[in-house]
Simulated assay, not measured.
Amino acid sequence: MTSDYATQRRKMVDGQLRTTDVSDVAVLDAMSRVAREEFVPGRRKALAYIDEDIEIAAARKDAAARYLMEPSPFGKLLQLADIRPGDFILDVGTGTGYPAAILSQIGSSVIGLESDSDLAAAATETLNRLGFDNVAIVEGPLGEGYPSEAPFDVIVIEGAVDEVPASLLDQLKDGGRLVAVVGQGNAGRATLFLKENGNVATRRAFNCAIRPLAAFLQVPSFQF
């Protein structure tokens, strides 16, 4: 089965990433090396390399379902972030830890922020078992980021948002980049936020429809 997964991984890189203009060598190499199936729970492991979002936590009364992002938009977001070998990275909504594992192969060190205690525990176990020793998983509200370790060179948000809160942008270093998909469904646009001299410039990059992160969705206000 290991060889089957390795074959599927190569097909993912060649058929889902390269064909959608992911050309960053570091991103392609990382996604070629990291065993995505290790971060997919139970019976869904067989679906680890499909070109769809994969449910990693079912919806509960107090929490929306959570998903592992489809490979192509994930790779394109990382390429947009222009991650460098020395970068200190915050991965917001890391889920079972796969995106943090990929980021750890491109940058220097990664903090994976997760609000779901079960997902955080699963991420910690898997990353430790596989030897990703430059990743730390922390638990807390996603919208607050992780100010005690800020500032960061790169922040990645692992789901669509209605808007990026100032609390996260404040945690970027000067020259730091944040990437997120702003908007839901067909209205979603991958967006780069770049901090320079204390100011944040925004560049909308490409259309991108991914699953939302509930922590970043605005509650509609009641109107008379």
Rank of each mutant, 00 (worst) to 15 (best):
V219G: 00
P151M: 01
D170N: 14
A209P: 10
S72M: 11
V13D: 06
V181C: 10
P147N: 03
L213G: 07
Y5H: 02
S3W: 12
T191E: 02
S109A: 15
E149Q: 10
R10G: 04
N197P: 08
G93V: 10
A30I: 14
A48T: 05
I56D: 04
G112R: 07
L47E: 11
A48R: 09
T126M: 08
P41A: 13
I137Y: 04
E70H: 13
R204Q: 15
E163L: 12
I210N: 05
L192C: 12
K61Q: 12
R66W: 00
E144T: 04
S72F: 04
A64S: 14
D116G: 03
I54T: 05
G75A: 10
E114C: 05
Q16G: 10
D24M: 11
D82E: 15
A30Y: 02
I83P: 02
R36K: 11
P99Q: 12
G86F: 03
N134E: 09
S104M: 07
F152H: 04
A121T: 05
S104Q: 02
L103Q: 03
S23C: 07
G185P: 01
A120I: 03
I83D: 03
S167P: 05
D174V: 01
R18D: 01
L119C: 06
D116L: 05
S167W: 02
T96L: 07
A58S: 14
S108W: 13
K195N: 09
V154N: 01
A121S: 14
I111Q: 00
G198W: 06
L172P: 12
